[in-house]
């Protein structure tokens, strides 16, 4: 196992190819759940769990079911099926094992089903021809990058509440402007090769 390669994947997924700031995937929850740091951490945790698990399962399905039978064109629908089931399973498991966490996450859990970042990371894993370990690591790193972006924006938006924002920019508008500036900052990582 090449540790350097894995580190490259982790660093690349978190900073260089950050799912939100570089690939612009999963913007809906990024805007929807970034009003408070607390809830954004909860959302990040749920996404991390689902993304890691979904990466693993979709890799197995792609390499042992779809590819051998030449069914690559079914990739999207099969992956969505798997992700939806996984989210459902996670919801049940969390409700049983930790009712408090379930309450804290609330509506965010089922929302992950429609998070395109999850589908995105599953498909990218296949495109990049990662092996199983790399796939899991990439899934987790991408999710950590997503969480980081969420918490960063939530922190800024909490302070924006008290700022004197001109009326036309209040609310989501200023949040998008902020997110755009953040994305420009993250452009500093682009082009780095590890």
């Amino acid at each position: 196992m090449d540790l350097g390669n894995l580190f490259g994947i982790i660093f690349g997924s978190i900073f260089i190819n950050n799912f939100i700031f570089a690939k612009f995937l999963g913007i809906c929850p990024f805007m929807g759940v970034s009003k408070k740091v607390e809830s954004s951490i909860g959302m990040g945790m749920a996404v991390t769990f689902v993304m890691t698990l979904a990466s693993a399962v979709t890799w197995v399905v792609q390499n042992y079911l779809l590819d051998p039978y030449g069914l690559g064109y079914l990739q999207t629908i099969a992956f969505i099926l798997i992700i939806a089931s996984l989210v459902q399973f996670v919801e049940m498991a969390v409700q049983k094992t930790s009712p408090n966490l379930y309450k804290a996450l609330g509506v965010f859990l089922p929302l992950i089903t429609t998070n395109c970042a999850v589908l995105g990371v599953a498909i990218l894993n296949i495109q990049e021809k990662y092996n199983f370990i790399e796939t899991v690591v990439n899934g987790m790193a991408a999710a950590i990058g997503f969480t980081m972006a969420l918490i960063l924006l939530a922190g800024i938006r909490e302070r924006l509440e008290y700022a004197d924002v001109p009326r036309p920019f209040q609310g989501v508008a200023i949040a998008f402007v902020t997110a755009g500036l953040l994305a420009m900052a993250f452009m500093g990582f682009s082009g780095m090769k590890i």
């Binding site: 399905v61 079911l65 779809l66 039978y69 069914l71 079914l74 099969a78 099926l81 798997i82």
Partner: peptide, 9 residues
């Protein structure tokens, strides 16, 4: 195959 695989999943 497609029906079987997707149905199977």
């Amino acid at each position: 195959n497609a029906i079987l695989v997707l149905g199977g999943i």
